[in-house]
Write a protein that binds this DNA or RNA. Structure first.
Lengths: 341, 341
DNA sequence: AATGAAATTGACAGCGCTGTCATTATCAAA
DNA sequence: TTTGATAATGACAGCGCTGTCAATTTCATT
């Protein structure tokens, strides 16, 4: 049924080794031979067997995606990005959701690596931001790419993709300030995530640069969830100094803030501006639509996978560092400060 | 570095075949021997290599998930369900998003099956509902489970998981009727999806059973998207006979309907009741929260994977058929008909 | 204690491919 | 035309496991 390398070799009148060379795009195969082989490959619908390649070769053909993230849009975007890179290169994707808090995470990952040879792991926050954890993974003798928040890579132990949340957050806050807001609330995600720290930093920077004093009462610790947005907004709106704008650390929190505002009969954006972060599909599905910052997760993930693939082919000299800065997208949930307040 | 079956055999003082037997839970291994082997396995952190198993054995250890669905929540739920089954049984998940409309789908799937030995495919709509397509896949000599809409399996060519959209839709519509609504709009998803057809059927059944005449002007063709909900609701609310309630074919459409209602200054549920379908996370994240029907996607997917696993172990006599009926969840987007209308 | 059937174990080939190394073909330069 | 270097190809082992089948052990019966 399924054609093997032997069938192709026979049909093309060459040795299996030559077929192998063609399939792996190795040089030193004469053009004529290559064509003969490709003809047979096409006729037989030959597709090299991954298991056999994995077993026989020293190269790997899979990439693992490690995450602990309840955000479906994020996960799907990342998957699709990795998949795009994989498809081009004949790689396979192994998805590995896990609990950052579990004590077994490392064991689980180690088991996975023992079970399937893997070209490398795509590490997302919070894993990517735990230096000792990353080091332990590397000690497992696997390659790794870290996707993390920040403008400068923290160390050289692995290639990084840095997302400049600081700058993006600054531009969101600046946008709010430009609209006339002076009392701007901030609802954070998990403080263990660097993205929260960085976004808070950008928020403070913008305020300070504009001569606005940071009011700690307007800064709420939260987590990256809808519910957290609901609570955060309720809390902020019951402060003595009510903010006229809220910067929510991601779109889900923002949606929650929106929800809470509705409950309290506050109209958006007339009485309160709300901004999110991430540009996930549902920032377009709230009413009003959310002002946010676009984080190109799919591109980032594709990048990450390509780095791993290049590395496994020894085409990567040193640990590269790529940079992304989310861009402000103004929609309807933010507006000029009105005299209703 | 990584322990192989040889290392374990040596350490346990048995042959590799015996180790293999233990790892595969075969009978006819003495208890004492089994313990010796397991001791070595644990000491060496031995994990059988998947590639080698795939290559050597006649069994497969992967399940492929085939889908064409923009709904991130749906996909994640399904993945997690399959993954749960896989984890228990040492299987691996291969995700395969693809375009139902593309002419290459079948080739792509065929290539995937040639490349990785697979225990079977989990087919979701629309693939699962295309009989000729399913047959072609089966002709590829792969096992298949179909997850589809309906109360009776259409044929015997493969095991099915039937989701009774008809009954669920009927109970949603009945709920609306019980609240006093007589003009109930319906916004469908893609009409190529059986779920749309079945939900429409349930809707009509409930109306008819309650002596309400079906008004075709209140039935809008759409697709499973937020935008479609926006358009559909706008259209419905500009009819001569304005509906007092809208049954949207899924939560995204419902969210869109909600959005459109806001734009038009219609308050929910006072002036208009809106119901969704699926109970995706964001039915809880709109304002007001959506009345919907809970579709247990994760359970369904786990089921599907387990069927495939059982089948690949010849533990399944005939093609099984499982049934699920989504259950009504009443939240805040539906209410008694008011005299505002 | 001898017997035979059943339970338990092991030797060995081979899954489909790649890596290594040896062999052969090719071609410019002498 | 011969030579030598280089390009192109092939033979063969072996990756880590399972399937087959044969060898050995066990144990209830005689």
């Amino acid at each position: 049924m399924k054609a093997t390398i032997n069938d192709v070799a026979k049909q093309a009148g060459v040795s299996i080794k030559t077929v192998s060379r063609v399939m792996n795009n190795e040089s030193s195969v004469r053009q004529l031979t290559r064509e003969k082989v490709m003809k047979a490959v096409n006729e037989l619908h030959y597709q090299p067997n991954l298991a056999a390649r994995n077993l026989a070769g020293s190269k790997a053909y899979s990439i693992a995606f490690i995450y602990d993230n309840p955000n479906a849009y994020y996960v799907i975007d990342m998957q699709n990005g990795i998949l795009a890179a994989c498809k081009q290169q004949g790689f396979e994707l192994i998805i590995h959701p896990c609990q950052a808090k579990s004590e077994h995470v490392l064991d689980e990952i180690a088991d996975m690596v023992r079970k399937s040879r893997v070209a490398g792991l795509v590490l997302t926050p919070p894993f990517s931001e735990m230096p000792e954890f990353v080091q332990k993974i590397i000690d497992l003798d696997v390659d790794v790419v870290r996707i993390m928040s920040g403008d400068v890579a923290p160390d050289e132990i692995a290639p990084c993709i840095m997302v400049n949340d600081h700058a993006a957050s600054e531009s969101i806050t600046q946008h709010l300030i430009d609209l006339g807001h002076k009392h701007i609330g901030f609802i954070g995600g998990e403080s263990a995530h660097m993205s929260t720290v960085e976004r808070l930093r950008g928020y403070k920077k913008a305020l300070t640069d504009n001569g606005i004093i940071v009011d700690e009462r307007l800064i709420i610790d939260g987590e990256y969830s809808f519910e957290s947005g609901v609570h955060g907004a309720k809390q902020l709106m019951s402060e003595d100094v009510r903010p006229t704008a809220i910067f929510s650390c991601n779109d889900e929190i923002a949606a929650g803030s929106l929800f809470a505002a509705r409950l309290m009969g506050i109209s958006i954006p007339d009485q309160l501006s709300i901004a999110g972060f991430e540009n996930s599909p549902f920032s377009r599905q709230t009413w009003p639509r959310l002002t946010t910052a676009n984080q190109p997760n799919q591109k980032i993930a594709e990048d990450a996978a390509n780095i791993l693939i290049a590395k496994s082919r020894k085409q990567l000299a040193k640990n590269s560092v790529n940079h992304y800065t989310p861009r402000l997208i103004v929609r309807d949930s933010t507006g000029k400060i009105s005299n209703l307040n």
